[in-house]
């Protein structure tokens, strides 16, 4: 076993069931390393959201354990410390915003930590800048676009200065522009050292991550780079998942007996390959 220090979040033989329902997570073991960008994909009802809740300590496993920075999420005495390390962003941005002004909303978390005003101010400035909402700081949330609202929700958690963000389908209610905005913010955060675990059903987004987890029926079906996962169309097809368009094109070309290198999952790689092949 790897030393627990490598992992920021670690799942070990985790089981979970909702009251009155069947098993949702079934013997799940995996780990999120510091600084990683993981995309979690899977069909509806596969347990993706549940896993996100477990990772952030919002849910406790029925059996097995989840550790954040070595702290067991089932231990009530460390839940505060876990909340400060892992932030969970929910699907609907509207329901996560608490204040009638952008700036006040970002301040909510640090205020709850009872930090002195100058420190609250510093964190608000940091978080607002990190998601690019500087110019909208005085707006009421209901006058923001979907993408702006979700960026604000992210800022609200960043103000707690977590090591890791877990996002439960943060872009599923957004238009393409909003989705691009949020993905841009996430990539930026990863570049600056924040660990990100993102649940998504948008394969183009998953292709941008460093690693992909495929979940079905509460079990981990694949854990590999996007290039590897998306070159296995049989698995994805069986689970009712689509391919990112670049991978789909690569598949169509391969079916026409054209030699396409493995691991092409995004536009950049495809353009690169075609330019070389056609010149």
């Amino acid at each position: 076993m790897t030393s627990s220090n490598d992992y920021l979040i670690q799942f070990e033989h985790v089981f979970f069931a909702y009251p009155g329902g069947g098993s949702v997570i079934h013997d799940f073991s995996a780990g999120v390393r510091r600084g990683e960008f993981i995309a979690l994909i899977g069909p509806n009802g596969s347990g993706k959201s549940t896993l996100a809740g477990l990772a952030a300590g919002a849910l406790r496993p029925a059996a097995g354990w989840v550790k954040v920075d070595g702290m067991d999420t089932a231990d009530p005495s460390v839940i505060g410390a876990i909340r400060r390390r892992v932030g969970l962003v929910l699907q609907n941005p509207d329901n996560q915003l608490v204040a009638a002004r952008v700036e006040e909303d970002v301040a909510f978390g640090p205020e709850n930590l009872n930090l002195p005003s100058p420190e609250v101010r510093r964190r608000v400035e940091y978080a607002i800048a990190a998601v690019g909402l500087d110019r909208l700081r005085d707006r009421p949330p209901h006058l923001l676009s979907g993408g702006e609202k979700q960026r604000l929700a992210i800022a609200g958690l960043l103000a707690l200065e977590p090591s890791c963000l877990v996002l439960d389908e943060p872009t599923s209610m957004l238009d393409p522009r909003g989705r691009r905005e949020v993905l841009g913010v996430l990539k930026n955060l990863v570049a600056k050292g924040t660990t990100v675990l993102q649940v998504t059903h948008h394969m183009g987004e998953a292709a941008e991550a460093g690693r992909v987890w495929v979940l079905a029926e509460g079990k981990l079906q694949a854990d590999a780079s996007p290039g590897t996962v998306f070159s296995r169309p049989e698995l994805l097809q069986r689970l009712g998942l689509a391919l990112p368009p670049a991978a789909e094109l690569a598949g169509c070309l391969a079916a026409r007996d054209i030699n396409v290198p493995a691991g092409i999952v995004n536009l950049e790689d495809m353009v690169h390959f075609l330019c070389r092949a056609l010149k």
Binding site: A56, R83, Q96, V98, E103, P110, V120, A153, L157
Partner: peptide, 16 residues
């Protein structure tokens, strides 16, 4: 969402 942002009923809060 409030709980995840460390809100606790009855706990003292500072201000921006």
């Amino acid at each position: 969402a409030m709980e995840l942002r460390c809100y606790q009923v009855g706990a003292p809060r500072s201000r921006l």
